[in-house]
Nucleic acid binder design. Structure first.
Lengths: 186, 186
DNA sequence: ATGTGCATGTAACTGGTTACATGATTCG
DNA sequence: CGAATCATGTAACCAGTTACATGCACAT
């Protein structure tokens, strides 16, 4: 019932929306984010790409490299754009994890900047709520686990940093709606 | 070959090491961390608990609640402690995600503070490397995806916050080794 | 020569989710 | 009176991993 199916499928489709890529490129990019979110394996990436192709959400251009295996550059189709637009516009689902949020941010960032604001706002509320719970005697702090330990402190630090970023980003976006179009895409 | 099998299994065992709990308690705690990492579902938690019990890594105390379903409080056994100690002491695996790191931190935090330092150090190097790559023209910044976009900025902010925390924590730990023992327990 | 990076793919497996079933209690 | 919280559990299903297979180019 979480309903925010942030499968690799949507995420990869989102990357392809920003820039045509090969499976290997996708892997390389995701690997660079490895410290934040786990990169899906090659196996998963390639089969996801095959699935997207079968469903007509991406097209492929095979660039033969006569000795090497040919590069297969995948590109999003109109049908794919429709699916993606619907997904990004759709409900975020409460209690999204950092991983989920980042994925949506990457996809939505250069696609529909106006739809972005409610997502940032939702996220801000969530992180803010977490921070508030720490001050209350009935929040997570009262939890027996790791009372006063490092993990709590770690989470706190990250939450504060994220919250500050969110507030900053929201302010920037609401002041000047920045009608991006040629920004990142074509 | 990632070898850092941070399955829910290890994580739950780690929570049980800090405090005996029911499956429902585990869920409640994990849910409070939902903004950071996805909480496993009830189905997974309960069946993991059953598995741990079968393997003798936890024991259970059934507290009958005559009208309500009985509470089943799980407690780690000596065998369980051995398994956990081995896991925490084991290799972290390079390129761990935030999720993985947090899990290890929660488990290790109140268990083996001396083994903690190399883990923090490894993590520090990883995050630091990411940050360095952003300055180089050949790093992730050169990636076609989301150039100059929000997601990159978001990641940067979090990375900086995490790095600062790690450096702080390392300094504190190396100056006074803090021989925790009763720290988190009774 | 040995390893690392480029480049793709498949099949078996397992970890975890979703959806279901049950039932009392408290809150609005 | 209906919804949420407490409290446990099972089984079908799906997402994603691991391990394998192939092969050239380039650096050490």
């Amino acid at each position: 019932m979480v309903s925010s199916g942030v499968s690799v499928r949507h995420f990869i489709l989102g990357l392809l929306n920003q820039q045509p890529m090969t499976g290997y490129d996708v892997k390389r990019f995701l690997k660079s984010l490895g410290w934040l979110i786990d990169s899906p394996s090659f196996g998963n990436i390639y089969s996801t790409l095959h699935g997207l192709l079968e469903d007509g959400l991406v097209s492929v251009e095979v660039i033969p490299n006569d000795t090497k295996p040919p590069r297969k550059v995948y590109n999003i189709t109109h049908a794919g754009e429709d699916v993606l637009r619907e997904w990004v516009g759709g409900p975020v689902g409460d209690n999204v994890s950092l991983r989920t949020f980042l994925m949506r941010l990457i996809v939505a960032g250069s696609f529909l900047p106006d739809r972005l604001i409610p997502q940032l706002e939702q996220r801000r509320q969530q992180v803010s709520r977490f921070l508030d719970d720490l001050s209350e005697p009935d929040g997570m702090r009262s939890s027996p686990v790791d009372s006063g330990g490092m993990a709590l402190d770690f989470g706190l630090t990250l939450a504060e940093a994220e919250l500050r970023w969110l507030e900053d980003a929201l302010e920037r976006l609401t002041r000047q709606p920045l009608a991006v179009e040629g920004g990142a895409g074509s």
